[in-house]
Amino acid sequence: MVQTTVVGTYPRIGETFEEQALRRGIARLDRGEIGEADLQVVERDTVRDVLREQNEIGIDLVTDGQISWYDSQSHFAGKLTSIEINGLVRYFDTNTYYRQPVVSGAVGWKEPVFVDEWKFAQSNSKAPVKAVLTGPVTLASLALDKHYRSKKTLALDLATAIGEEVGTLVQAGASHVQIDEPILTRHPNDLSLVSESLERIRSHKSSATLTLFTFFGDVATIYKDLAEVPADILGLDLVQGSATWTPLAKHGSTKPLVLGLVDARNTKEEDPAAIAKKALDLKSAIDLKSSYLSPSNGLEFLPRDRARKKLRILRAAAKKVGVGA
């Protein structure tokens, strides 16, 4: 039977009073009523809830929902040397915004950013918790570079920093590490740079499983080469990136895949049988048993109740794949 996983983010708040604790906590921090340590308690309660929801639904490989991240770019980049965080910029084609990292000197890793968060999450989850990091090429592409004046050099230095971070995560016990490179759906020509930077990260991963995930679009034009990148698993958005389906079905994959088949950007509910059928259509092209079903991208673009529904659809679809396999 195919397994299930998520991509990364999870809605931070829901509709009930209890589910809005994090929003209230951040507002209280902004007003100076509580300190950072108090907010961390609220964040961790939320992480616990997010993990419980994924565990209860039966997701096989979960994340901490990236609850403590301000956004996908500034959270990690802001803790590296020579990076300041600036104004708001739209995040790809979403209705969300990130604070733009501004690079003013040589970028370097200072200290672990995610290790404590990951340890806490794993201690509160039955299922393994995947450590998710934004990839160096996406980070370099979305930053304002005032130092290197070369995306490649910046990306490779970021890759070195991410490699250090991955090393500490693996040492702490992380068995799954995912690198997100959504930029590949916009700039397929960056594939060779993604491969080169993954080599640097890979050298720190030890026995952990390394996944490369692309989302917010298709990678049809580079699919064949993408399948050769130095990662153990390849994650694909097959909703917004439905055009990837054709080369995927044609060439298959020797690597296990994460099939992003459930639309994480629209509330419309899919029929689990239809999702299962799509996965089963790939039965002869990929190894379904070592692959995963997932939402098409992080779940934070949906309201929390809808995100839960999508995960149930995912789980039901995986069960149907098991029956049909």
């Binding site: 809605p11 931070r12 708040i13 829901g14 509709e15 929003r23 951040i26 507002a27 902004d30 301000y70 956004d71 708001l88 209705n95 969300t96 915004y97 990130y98 509330t267 934070e300 673009f301 949906l302 309201p303 929390r304 109740d305 809808r306």
Partner: peptide, 17 residues
């Protein structure tokens, strides 16, 4: 009208369906 969806930071809005 959906439940709350995040825009950025601590800003959320209810999204039309």
């Amino acid at each position: 009208i959906s439940g709350l969806v995040r825009s950025y930071g601590n800003r959320y809005y209810k999204k039309p369906i």
